[in-house]
């Protein structure tokens, strides 16, 4: 594999792929490390934010207070009824007009977090409805406040039932970080596009980036399955 062979391979495309592709990947692989790290950071922060948004929204929706219910309804309606890409553009390109200027990373986290929150809210709400009323009543009857009964008695039980659906949602968030390539975040997708445009090897590099995404989502699913089993031991 001489350097001239590599050059020929890159120009003649698939015909000499066997000779050149591994070399190319070896050369460009280091660039995927920081890009992966960006995806991990954005994903973790977005997922945490989506859980927070989802929890607040679910509690608001089940609170029985219209002043809390209506804003929550509006949030769900808007976020679930519009494309994520539109929301990303709205936050990154639109908000500066109102004087709210976010750097691409922050805008990306906010967009994915707020978007995910709407889906998490429905998952948590379903979980809350799945806990028998008597669980909270017995806590209240013992003198616990609303918050104590939620935090100590109801939500720990909700967590257990929502682990599988929440895992799917978190995996979506990881995958959706690819959309942030459109707002100049050098995450995996944008990095791959840049590399492909100079190597003309879309097949190899999109396969490679797929494997990296797969590794991340697989780690997530294995981790969540472990969490599910750990919570199931009790009962």
């Amino acid at each position: 594999m001489s350097s001239s062979g590599q050059d020929i391979a890159s120009y003649s495309g698939m015909y000499n792929a066997v000779d050149g592709w591994w070399n190319q990947i070896e050369v460009y692989l280091p660039l995927f490390v920081p890009a992966s790290w960006v995806v991990i950071q954005v994903s973790v922060l977005s997922i945490v934010l989506s859980w927070a948004c989802g929890l607040v929204c679910a509690l608001a929706k089940t609170s029985g207070y219209r002043v809390l219910q209506y804003p929550a309804e509006f949030y769900l309606w808007f976020v679930r009824g519009t494309p994520l890409l539109t929301q990303i553009f709205l936050i990154y390109f639109g908000l500066p007009q109102l004087g709210i200027r976010l750097d691409p990373f922050t805008a990306g986290v906010v967009a994915l977090g707020v978007n995910g929150g709407a889906y998490v809210a429905e998952i948590i709400r379903g979980g809350l409805l799945g806990i028998p009323q008597g669980q909270r009543e017995s806590a209240l009857a013992l003198g616990m406040t609303y918050w104590q009964s939620m935090r100590r008695i109801v939500l720990p039980q909700v967590v257990r039932i929502i682990i599988p659906p929440i895992t799917n949602d978190a995996a979506s968030t990881i995958k959706n970080t690819s959309l942030l390539s459109t707002i100049t975040i050098m995450e995996l997708m944008l990095q791959t596009q840049v590399i492909v445009s100079s190597t003309f090897r879309p097949f190899e590099f999109y396969i490679l980036v797929s494997l990296i995404y797969l590794a991340m989502t697989t780690v997530l699913m294995v981790g969540m399955r472990w969490a599910e089993r750990r919570h199931a031991i009790a009962y």
């Binding site: 028998p132 008597g134 669980q135 009543e137 017995s138 806590a139 209240l140 009857a141 013992l142 003198g143 008695i153 720990p156 039980q157 257990r160 009790a234 009962y235």
Partner: peptide, 18 residues
């Protein structure tokens, strides 16, 4: 505070399973 002074036992026990 009032409820803390009054114990209640339910038909369905309502122990916390976790």
């Amino acid at each position: 505070r009032l409820r803390a002074e009054i114990g209640m036992v339910f038909q369905q026990f309502n122990l916390w399973p976790h």
